[in-house]
Design a protein around this nucleic acid. Structure first.
Length: 579
RNA sequence: CGAGGUGUAGCGCAGUUUGGUAGCGCGCUUGGUUCGGGACCAAGAGGCCCCGGGUUCAAAUCCCGGCACCUCGACCA
C-alpha cells in the first residue's frame, strides 16, 4: 500500500469530542470517523486492525473446535417474547417494524436465535457437544455512548455458544473457551485479568470476565495478591466480619433520641454529632417487585444493588420515591432507620452493619436520630447478608489479606447459562434411554472493537499509537525522506517490493512531504517498524531500521533489509504467542 | 431521564455581552523555494453562522420552539 493512495486522513489537532487517549488517537490516526453518537465508520487502518483481532479470535476459536456461523442482525420479536427478554431488555434494544407492522429488533445479542436454530436441528445426544461462534455487529441503544468505540451503540462482537448434554460437558466447553480467551488476549498484547463477575440480566451461574487493566475502565475490580482472588466489585464478596464479643463489663448507654435538625446526609449527621461515618447506619428504602424493603449498610459503605437483588430474589429493584419513604418510615427522607418504622417491611442488613456498637440511626421522625442502637436489642433484620460494595483495602473474603483495587475494561465474558434459554425455547435432546433433556448451554463474548480500543489505551505515547506486531494495521513503513532524490526513491522502492515479496505487510510513504510530516504520521499511526531511507547512510548502501516502541535504530544494508525486517516481525509475533 | 455545556469553513477556535461588510490558526488548491521531526514566500478556493418561527430598517448576535453533540449522574451482558 502506498501512503499517497491510502485513505487514512490524519489529524494534527485533537477533535474536541474525544477525551481518552484511544479515542483521540483513533480519530487522529484516521482509523475511524463518527457518523452519529455511538456509531462509527472504520476507515482503512481501523478496518485492518479490526480484521487482525478477528483473525486471532477465529484462529483461537477454531483451535478449540468451535465452528463459525453467521446469524442475522435483524431478529423477530417473537423469539424474544418467548424468553421474556422483549420486555426485560427495555429501551436498550433497537426496535423496528417491517412494512407489515411485524415487530423486529437489531440484535443486541444472539442467545435466542442460536438456541432456536439449534433446537430446530438437534435431536440426539449424538449431535452434542457443539460450540458455535460468530463475529457479528451488535446493536445496543446505550443510554450514554462514550469513549469512542469503547462504549458504542453499534459494535463488533464475537459471540460463542456451547451446547452440552450435562454439566460436566459444559465445564469442558467452558474450559476450552477460557483457554481460548487467555490466548486471544495474550496475542493481542494486552495486560488482562480474569475476574469473577455478576451474571446480570443474562442469567446463569458461574461466570468470568476478562478485563484489560486501564484507568479509563468502567468497571472497578479488586485483587488479592496473596491468594489470587479477583472480582468485579459488582460481584466481589465482602469478608465476614468478626463476631462481636459480648462485653459484659461494658455499661450500655442505651438507646436515646437526639435532635438533628435538618441533618439528612451522612456528612451532615456525622459532622453534627462528631462521630465516624462507620458508626452510622444508612437505611435505604427500595421497592422490590412492588414491595418496599429497607436495606442497612454502614455509613461509610455503598450498597450493592446487584447483591441486594440476589438476596431478595427479585426481578425489579429501584430506590423508593420520597413519597414511599415517607409512608413507610413516617418521616421525610434522611431520617429513616430500622427502629420503629411505621410500616412493617422486610429489613435486610449488611452483616457488617449488625456488629456496629452504639450505632447512630435515623429515628423515623423529623429532625431526629437515635444513638446507641444495638442490633438484636433495639432492632433486628429479616435477612443478614453481604449487600455492600467491596473496596480496595478490605479483607480478602478467601484469605483475609488486604485487597487491592484497579479499574478495567471488560473485553470478554464467559457465562454458564445452564438451561435458561434451552428450557424457555424448548431446545432438547434425547439421551441413550430415549429420555428428553434440555440442552445445557454456555455463552462466551469478546468485544472486538472494544479490544482494539483497549490495545491502544495500553500501547501509546504522546506521539501516537505503538501497535503490538500482532494487531498492527501494517507491520512496517518505508520512508524515503526526500522524494525528489531519485536515489532515495529507487532504494525505497526496491526495499518496499522486497518486503512485500517476503510477506511483510508494508506501506510505502511515497508522498511528496517533508520528513517531519512523515515521521509524525508514522509515529501517530504506529507502524511497529520504520525503514528510513535518508541521505545520511544511503552513500554506504545502508538504511535505518527503527522500532516505534523504543526508537532504537540499526543500520542495515539495502539488500538485507527485507530479510531483517521479516526476522523482526516473526520474532515479535512469536513473543506474543502463548507456549 | 436529571444537571451542566457546546453548535460559526475539513479540524481547532474567536466574534454573541452592546444587532450593522463573517474572522484567526491549521488543513486544502496553484506556482516557486526548500527537504532528518507537522517548512517558507506568493496567489487562491472554501460558510444555510445547527434547524424552524418571531422582534427589527437590519439578526451569527435578541426572543420562542425544536434538533444534534459533549460532560457528570442515574441506568446497563
Amino acid at each position: 500500500m502506498r501512503m499517497s493512495q491510502m485513505f487514512a486522513p490524519t489529524l494534527r489537532e485533537v477533535p474536541s469530542e474525544a477525551d481518552i487517549p484511544s479515542h483521540q488517537l483513533m480519530l487522529r490516526a484516521g482509523m475511524v470517523r463518527k457518523t452519529v453518537s455511538g456509531v462509527y465508520s472504520y476507515l482503512h487502518l481501523g478496518c485492518r486492525v479490526v480484521r487482525k483481532v478477528e483473525k486471532i479470535v477465529r484462529e483461537e476459536m477454531d483451535r478449540q473446535g468451535a465452528q463459525e456461523v453467521l446469524m442475522p442482525a435483524i431478529q423477530s420479536a417473537d423469539i424474544w417474547r418467548e424468553t421474556g427478554r422483549w420486555d426485560d431488555y427495555g429501551s436498550e434494544m433497537f426496535r423496528l417494524k417491517d412494512r407489515n407492522g411485524r415487530e423486529m429488533c437489531l440484535g443486541p445479542t444472539h442467545e435466542e436465535i442460536i438456541t432456536v436454530t439449534v433446537r430446530d436441528e438437534i435431536r440426539s445426544y449424538r449431535q452434542l457437544p457443539k460450540i458455535l461462534y460468530q463475529i457479528q455487529t451488535k446493536y445496543r441503544d446505550e443510554i450514554r455512548p462514550r469513549f469512542g468505540v469503547m462504549r458504542s451503540r453499534e459494535f463488533i462482537m464475537k459471540d460463542a455458544y456451547s451446547f452440552d448434554r450435562d454439566n460436566e460437558g459444559l465445564d469442558r466447553s467452558y474450559e476450552k473457551m477460557y483457554e481460548a480467551y487467555c490466548r486471544v488476549f495474550s496475542r493481542c498484547g494486552v495486560d488482562y485479568r480474569v475476574v469473577e463477575a455478576d451474571a446480570g440480566a443474562i442469567g446463569g451461574s458461574q461466570n468470568h470476565e476478562f478485563m484489560v487493566v486501564s484507568e479509563v475502565g468502567e468497571d472497578a475490580l479488586v485483587f488479592c495478591d496473596a491468594c489470587g482472588y479477583a472480582a468485579n466489585v459488582e460481584r466481589a464478596e465482602s469478608a465476614k466480619p468478626a463476631e462481636r464479643v459480648a462485653d459484659t463489663e461494658k455499661v450500655r448507654t442505651g438507646i436515646r433520641k437526639i435532635s438533628t435538625p435538618g441533618m439528612r446526609t451522612i456528612e451532615e449527621v456525622t459532622g453534627y454529632l462528631k462521630v465516624e461515618p462507620r458508626v452510622l447506619l444508612k437505611t435505604l428504602v427500595y421497592v422490590a417487585d412492588g414491595t418496599p424493603v429497607a436495606a442497612i449498610v454502614r455509613g461509610d459503605r455503598d450498597l450493592n444493588e446487584a447483591k441486594l437483588k440476589r438476596v431478595l430474589g427479585c426481578r425489579e429493584l429501584e430506590l423508593a420515591t420520597p413519597e414511599v419513604i415517607e409512608r413507610v418510615s413516617g418521616a421525610p427522607v434522611g431520617f429513616t432507620g430500622p427502629v420503629g418504622l411505621r410500616e412493617r417491611i422486610k429489613i435486610v442488613a449488611d452483616w457488617e452493619a449488625t456488629v456496629v456498637e452504639d450505632a447512630v440511626v435515623g429515628a423515623n421522625a423529623v429532625d431526629a436520630h437515635l444513638v446507641g442502637a444495638e442490633y438484636g436489642v433495639d432492632y433486628t433484620a429479616d435477612i443478614v447478608a453481604d449487600i455492600r460494595n467491596v473496596v480496595a483495602g478490605d479483607a480478602c473474603p478467601r484469605c483475609g489479606a488486604e485487597l487491592c483495587g484497579a479499574r478495567g475494561v471488560e473485553v470478554g465474558h464467559l457465562f454458564k447459562l445452564g438451561t435458561k434459554y434451552s428450557s424457555a425455547l424448548g431446545a432438547k435432546y434425547l439421551d441413550e434411554g430415549g429420555v428428553e433433556h434440555p440442552i445445557i448451554m454456555g455463552c462466551y463474548g469478546i468485544g472486538i472493537t472494544r479490544t482494539v480500543a483497549s490495545v491502544i489505551e495500553e500501547h501509546h505515547d504522546d506521539d501516537g499509537i505503538i501497535w503490538p506486531m500482532s494487531v498492527a494495521p501494517y507491520q512496517a513503513v518505508v520512508m524515503p525522506l526526500n522524494t525528489s532524490e531519485s536515489a532515495q526513491v529507487e532504494a525505497a522502492e526496491r526495499i518496499y517490493s522486497e518486503l512485500c515479496k517476503h510477506g511483510v505487510e508494508a506501506v510505502m510513504d511515497d508522498r511528496d512531504e517533508r520528513p517531519g510530516v512523515k515521521f509524525k504520521d508514522a509515529d501517530l499511526i504506529g507502524f511497529p517498524i520504520r525503514v528510513i531511507v535518508g541521505p545520511k547512510h544511503l552513500g554506504d548502501g545502508e538504511v535505518e531500521v527503527s522500532m516505534r516502541r523504543d526508537g532504537t535504530v540499526e543500520l542495515v544494508k539495502i539488500e538485507n533489509v527485507a530479510v531483517r525486517v521479516k526476522e523482526i516481525v516473526d520474532r515479535e509475533l512469536a513473543a506474543l504467542m502463548p507456549e
